[in-house]
Amino acid sequence: MSDPLQQFQEKIRSAAANKAPLRIRGSGSKDFYGVKLEGDVLDTRGYSGIVDYEPTELVFTARAGTPLREVEAALAEKGQMLPFEPPHFGPDATFGGCIASGFSGPRRAYHGAVRDFVLGVRSLNAAGEDLQFGGQVMKNVAGYDVSRLLTGSFGTLGLILEVSVKVLPIPDDERTLRLEMNETAAIETMNRCAGQPLPLSATCFTDNSLYIRLSGAASAVSAARKQLGGETIDGKTFWQSVREQTHPFFSNPGTLWRLSMKSTAAPLTLGPTLIEWNGSLRWISGEGDLENRQAVASKAGGYATLFRAQTRPKAIQYLSPAMMALQKKIKQALDPEGLFGPHRLHAEF
């Protein structure tokens, strides 16, 4: 039997010859997301393993099929972490799926998103050609930033084989505070704190409580705790439940909406709400239609996503006609025959 890479290439070439689309998939932990799941599954899990990791370089490289938990364990062993705190949404989530989904967790507003830490991607295109963009160095402006274009593309532009990311040290100290207040006061407080040199690493509002996580040097965390007040709680469990959407808020039946917008936007009054990222990420649960949610988000400089639903939606995001046209051109540029994940992100392509 040939090696996994050759198998991928053969699979892609034969799919291209037969005009039979492929669905690139790791463990399927993010299968819930998107408009349609079309095509024969190309399972990335056979292509697994850490390729290169030198903690003092702050650069970590692994194959797409590597379980995300193994990646995080290898980093933790050396006192480092993925700074974007990605949600797994399943026990067997893969590193490739983490990059392809582009989902970032609670730390995102303070350290950056998946795309901010991606340094290089090795991938296969629709002709099965082996491509390398970016690399294992922190600064690289040679050529267009295709690595970041593939990040968050849900396997619709090519097969991610290997990814290099910048990693960061795990903070020395981490404490979580809970302060009781209403939504308006919480949004105001999150934004005020973010404008000060405080060691913030996560904020969340739910159930009339504002949760603030502080990370960094013990002295700085302790000084910030005194300044902010509130009750110190067990942060690990709480942030894990927000990150993985196991917090009771997310067990509300019905549709889960993700609204990304200006952090200072007033409370939306669209239903039960959980807020993250200083106010720039609002999770809303309950029925509604995309057009209406988009109108609300758009007024606040953002956009809405139908994140989870009981049945496959017709659309998860709205794009302006000009933006849709350009996105379609990008798709055609990288995957001219529409081989990879057709209609996963948009009904249009």
Binding site: Y144, L149, S260, K262, A297, G302, L319, S320, Q327, I330
Partner: peptide
């Protein structure tokens, strides 16, 4: 004329903000 990115921390679709930065 297109608006790329947003007032929030991300935008829908492929990451064109990253693509045009450094182009």
């Amino acid at each position: 004329l297109l608006e790329i990115g947003g007032d929030g921390l991300d935008a829908p679709g492929y990451d064109l903000l990253a693509l045009i930065t450094g182009s």
